[in-house]
């Protein structure tokens, strides 16, 4: 079975933050919590590139590896989810995550850390899909309704793609080849040298 993947095509991303508000719209995360963010490098200078980042749903997820309460699970197609009832809000996963994804909503005054919140690939969590309980804890479960993550579906320029990794790759490959035959994705030159095509 193929894996679900996010891909942000940095050549298409214009940092419009549509993915960020689409996520808020679908999941109604509270003020101050952003499951998805757009990061801009070289902001305001030649070479400026933006990329939208959320949980990358790692194959070998460091958050899951370090979790003292073992609250993470991975669906067969690679969506990393967690059970908030088990989460103790320790922040170890935040420490482990290479992308700074886990966030801890304030639940009370004076900044006490709440249970970890992160992107669910719009797949909710361990509750009855579409139930009020699931929505309150994890946000929407669009996957269960046959839809894909709101951020990618609503991306202004179709830079952000989410779905079966093979299909995502097919689109990206097609675009890459039409760009003078050379993928101009961010980091290509760094990884393979500027002269290589």
């Amino acid at each position: 079975m193929a894996r679900m993947k996010f891909l942000c095509d940095a050549d298409r991303c214009i940092e419009c933050n549509g993915c960020v508000t689409a996520c808020k719209n679908a999941n109604e995360v509270p003020w101050g919590v952003n499951r998805r963010r757009v990061v801009t490098l070289n902001d305001g200078e030649p070479g400026e590139k933006s990329i939208s980042v959320a949980c990358m749903h790692c194959d070998d997820a460091p958050c899951a590896a370090v979790c003292p309460t073992d609250c993470f699970y991975t669906t067969t197609d690679g969506i990393v989810l967690h059970d908030k009832d088990l989460c103790i809000g320790c922040g170890y996963c935040f420490f482990a995550c290479p992308f700074g994804v886990p966030q801890f909503p304030e639940q009370r005054a004076f900044g006490s850390r709440g249970r970890m919140d992160k992107c669910t690939f719009c797949a909710g969590g361990p509750e009855e899909p579409g139930s009020q309980a699931e929505f309150e804890k994890y946000g929407a479960n669009l996957i269960a309704e046959g839809m894909l993550p709101a951020c990618a579906e609503m991306c202004a320029t179709k830079a952000l793609l989410a779905g079966d990794g093979d299909l995502v790759a097919e689109i990206f490959h097609h675009r890459s080849t039409s760009r003078d035959g050379r993928p101009q994705t961010w980091g290509w030159a760094t990884a393979y040298g500027a002269g290589l095509s």
């Binding site: 997820a61 899951a64 590896a65 370090v66 073992d70 899909p129 269960a144």
Partner: peptide
Amino acid sequence: FFEAGKYQGGDDPLLQKLE
């Protein structure tokens, strides 16, 4: 190896659906 432990949380009916 720092391996993930066995998932201790509740069942997610979605998993069944995805099969």
